[in-house]
Structures are given as structure tokens and as C-alpha cells.
Computed example of a mutant assay.
Amino acid sequence: MSKNIFLCCILAITCALAVASDPAPLQDFCVADFNSQVLVNGVACLDPKLVTADNFFLSGFDKPGNVSNQQGSAVTSAMVEQIPGLNTLGTSLIRFDYAPWGIVSPHMHPLASEILVVVEGTLLVGFVTSNPDNKLISKVLQKGDVFVFPQGLVHFQQNVGYVNAFSYSAFGSQNPGVVLVPNTVFGSTPHITTDVLAKAFQVDKAIVDQIEAKF
């Protein structure tokens, strides 16, 4: 009996791992049909007879994004919205551009892990482990270095050089999702009450109001 229970536990764990990422496709491809009114977990499929090579193609990843903003960074996406052929394939790509000392704010991807490669420049990157440790795992990366951010953990990037930098990041999902910590906490609609945030961050309510005004 105990052996059977053990085997059932192993089977349950295996099944849980199997559904922890995007579902595997059941056909060669499922090019996203953004005009479809059908609601599915992903995007409905375009008629395969209408599919062309352009559905799997995107140009312009060699061009830097506009980093003249408060964060000093820009994101260029290669996700299902830009490449309809990515639908159901469980992968996507992003280009990050950074002005000197530009940042990608602390954020998390609830649906995928991320692997980043530095193409130009010097980046400070890191992620924070979950409670109760909240340990910062951080490293300075140079051109050609690769770093991994585990799924669901808060992480960040900063250009710590004096020239522009850029990197590529790949994800194990067509839609990794993104939760920007500052925007989520201080820019929600409607706002989280000032009392809650003041107590959570152990600051005066006036400081919370000041920060919220920026979002």
C-alpha cells in the first residue's frame, strides 16, 4: 500500500511539473488570429491556408529603442503580438536598451523564467529570493555574459557604464507577464489606501502621497 501511495505522489508531482509552463502545441503551429472572437487560453488559430512566412518574422531588432525617459531604458518586444507565429510555441524574446545608469525597474514575470545575455555594455543585475530570506543574488555582467532570473522572483537591471548598453532576454512562455513593482504598489487603479502603504513601508503618509503622485 505504501509503495502505491509513493508512486501516486511521484505521478502527482510529475503532472504538476508538466503543467507549470505553456501547454505544448497539438499541431505544427497556431498562428494568432487577432480578429477572432473566440476566447481561449492564448489566441485563436488563423486558418493554416492563410499562413505566410511573415507570420513568423520580425525585423528591427538591430535598432536601439528610445531611452530618453525617466528610467533611461527601452523595451523592444518579440512576443505573440509582434510575431503571431509564436502563439502556442512557449517562447518569446525582448531587447532592452539602456542609457548610461539607466534601469529596468524591479519587476517580476509570473509566467516564465528569463535568461539574459549582454550584447554591449556593463550591467548590474539581480533578483531577490522569496520570504523569509529575501536574499539578493546580484552580479555585474560584461559583454557576452549570461544571467538567469527564476520565474516569479523580483529582479532588476541597471547600466553601470558610461555608454549605452543593450541586452537580449528570452522567456519560456509566449506571454511571460510583467508586474512592475513601483507601478503596481503606487500606481494601481484605484490606489491602495495610503494607510496600508504607510504601515507596510513604515513611512509617513505624506511620503506615500508624494510617491503616488509620480505614478
Results as ranks from 00 to 15, higher is better:
S21K: 13
D22I: 00
D33S: 02
A20Y: 08
C45W: 03
L50D: 07
Q37V: 08
D33Y: 09
Q37G: 09
D47A: 09
C15W: 01
A32P: 01
N41W: 09
L46N: 01
D33C: 06
D28M: 07
L26M: 14
L46P: 00
L26R: 05
A16L: 14
L17C: 15
A20Q: 14
D28V: 11
N35E: 15
F29I: 09
A32S: 03
C30G: 05
D33V: 10
V31T: 03
A32G: 01
A18D: 13
L39Y: 12
D22T: 02
V40C: 05
L39R: 12
D22S: 13
C45E: 08
C30P: 03
N35T: 05
L39S: 15
D47T: 00
L17I: 11
N41V: 10
V31C: 07
N41H: 15
V38N: 12
C15F: 03
G42V: 11
D28H: 05
V38C: 03
V40S: 06
L50R: 13
P25I: 12
C45H: 06
V43T: 14
A20K: 07
L50I: 00
S36M: 12
F29P: 00
L50M: 08
A32T: 01
V19N: 11
D28F: 11
G42I: 07
A32M: 04
D33A: 05
V31P: 00
L26Y: 07
D33T: 06
V19W: 10
C15T: 10
A44K: 01
L26G: 15
Q37H: 10
S21M: 03
